[in-house]
Design a protein around this nucleic acid. Structure first.
Lengths: 209, 209
DNA sequence: ATAATATCCGGACCGCAGTCCGTTTAGACT
DNA sequence: AGTCTAAACGGACTGCGGTCCGGATATTAT
């Protein structure tokens, strides 16, 4: 059942953090920063956003930016959190074939297809959110995808180390690789989806159940 | 036949570059730099080697370091070139099951196993050689592996987009991921090899030939 | 030997992510 | 209002990869 509450990603605007609420100036600055960040992403692209530019645009000090988001990757995760949460909701609770109800193989195929579309839309942000060795595999979102794929593999009767196989399948769907394939090597997203389907069919198809 | 001459990686000490030979001071500095770099890798680990430290240790200016190697990634590639060339020689011309002579599936399995061992030994360098978006997928070595896997897939009768499937398989073998699995998640290399074998068996096993 | 020149050298310089710490201020309590 | 304190602020600072260009030097032609 995957005892995971939805969206462990990052707080967008909620408070209620144990002891006291957030100070008002902090809240105001966070809004200023998020607003400025979205502007900058639109103007310069995700890769063109620097923490200095962001601080200046928002009219706050650089230290404030890092206290809010911890790192550049953290900022990018925050910017992604809405889209990410929506995606998570769809594959965990949404309608088939992505959500529960469809056979595991169908869900795996749909998961890859949706993920590819997601990367085509938010890939730059997602890639920027994955810098810093630490967050790349341990980020809540990445862990959740991994578990989801592993779960689907098990459900499909895959009995040989589903954990590692989920790792391999995740690797195929990494933003960096997908973006490079599409933007540099001119592979169409449709072709990516076809190859993903072929891959998962073969991986689970040969299984016992 | 893959019309590729061996080792397009980086010159270790050869000259013969079109016009004139290398100036003697340049050659001397390159040796100083390589020697210092190997020392530093041993002392600080690949991740601990900075270009400033290297320049100071070798007793040359920072500019010289960058003229020699182009970038930090280039330096790491150069440090890897011997091991890399040896590996390439083995899977292209060496004895079966890695080299030609064995059935394609056997060669694929052996390739993954060898690659895993390679990463266990040189993983830090390999990872450091893969920074900078550009070199990650376009580096000669990466292209060669990709082509090799694609070739083996075709030979094994895989008929559905071998190019992209080779990309997926390559993704599984990336140093970053493998190192993380082993060092952080305590997966044994043997388990990685088993999962790789399972993966390629299923991928080519379901094929026509 | 000497002059000419293409190459190489060095380190000051830049932009960036991330840290540190003295200063300011919001919010609660009196 | 006044005081007190924990939290937030800001921007100078560090370390890094990478660039630039005036000066030094090996090589070649004479």
């Amino acid at each position: 059942m995957l005892g995971v509450s939805l969206i462990p990603i990052r707080s967008g605007s909620s408070s209620a953090s144990g002891s006291g609420a957030e100070r008002s100036d902090a809240a105001r600055n966070r809004e200023l920063l998020l607003c400025a960040a979205r502007q900058l992403v639109e103007e310069c692209g995700a890769d063109g956003v620097t923490m200095d530019k962001l601080a200046e645009r928002a009219g706050v000090g650089k230290g404030t930016v890092f206290r809010r988001f911890g790192s550049r990757a953290g900022l990018m995760m925050t910017l992604l959190s809405d889209a990410e949460a929506e995606f998570q909701g769809r594959f965990m609770f949404g309608p088939p074939p992505l959500g529960p109800g469809a056979p595991p193989l169908e869900r795996l195929i749909a998961f890859g297809a949706e993920r590819i579309r997601y990367v085509m839309e938010y890939g730059e942000l997602a890639r920027a959110a994955e810098t810093s060795l630490h967050n790349r595999f341990e980020a809540p979102a990445a862990v959740l995808w991994h578990r989801h794929i592993e779960h689907l593999l098990r459900s499909a009767g895959f009995d040989a180390d589903p954990w590692l196989m989920a790792m391999s399948l995740s690797a195929t769907l990494e933003p960096e690789r997908l973006l490079h394939a599409v933007r540099v090597q001119h592979v169409s997203p449709g072709r990516l989806e076809d190859s993903w389907r072929e891959l998962v069919i073969r991986v689970v198809g040969a299984a016992g159940g």
